[in-house]
Amino acid sequence: MTITIDEGLLRRMARDAAVYGLTRPWAIVMWVALAAGLALSFLTLGTGAADDADAAAWLPLATLGLGVVAVLATVSSARRAVRTATPPGTVVWARLEPDTLQIGADRRVSDIRYREFEGIRVGRDAVILRIRNSTAVTVVPRVLLTDDDIARLRLSVA
């Protein structure tokens, strides 16, 4: 099966990639740290223990601002990465072979051995395969893989 990437699918795949990025273990640590910073800033603000009350008043806003910047940067990065790999109009296909996942995008074909993948996350519109020993991922349109294909990938990646 082949599909042509359109703007809507591109946005939905980027959304799945952004959710993946925002829920990775390092991101969870960041969210916990930001929540702790926010709680601490409210506690400091409420007790008047801060040396500079004006500076303390800005701490909750600064903490929330850091969270917003993290979300915007992750979403922007995911959109850019997905758009670069599969711009609108790209004809994409995927095929599972005994030892490799073959992915084609227009005239490019990639053969990636299953052992190169470290993990898999299945979103609504994208299957995200994490590359071993790397922060890189491969994003495949979900529609190209059947439930059996995904089960096979899960077994091969584990």
Rank of each mutant, 00 (worst) to 15 (best):
T44V: 08
L96K: 05
M30S: 12
R83L: 02
A62G: 15
T90Q: 03
D51N: 13
P60G: 07
G21T: 06
V92Q: 04
L40F: 15
T44H: 06
R83K: 03
L45H: 03
S76E: 13
T47Q: 08
A50L: 00
G67W: 12
A70I: 10
A35E: 12
A81I: 05
T86I: 14
L61Q: 14
T90R: 05
A55Q: 12
L38M: 08
G46T: 03
R80C: 07
A39K: 08
E97K: 11
V68M: 07
L61G: 15
L72W: 12
A53Q: 13
G67V: 10
T86E: 14
L45G: 04
V91C: 04
A33L: 12
A94W: 00
T84G: 08
W93N: 15
R80E: 14
A56M: 02
A57T: 10
R80T: 10
L34P: 01
V71E: 13
A70F: 14
A49F: 10
A27T: 10
T23S: 05
G21H: 00
F42D: 03
L43A: 14
V92N: 05
A27S: 10
L38Q: 03
I28F: 09
W58H: 09
G46Q: 09
L45K: 00
R24C: 05
L40T: 10
L34K: 12
V71D: 07
L59H: 11
V92T: 12
G67M: 10
G46N: 09
A62Y: 12
A36W: 02
G37W: 11
A49W: 13
L61M: 15
A62S: 15
D52L: 10
T44I: 08
S77Y: 03
A56S: 09
G67K: 10
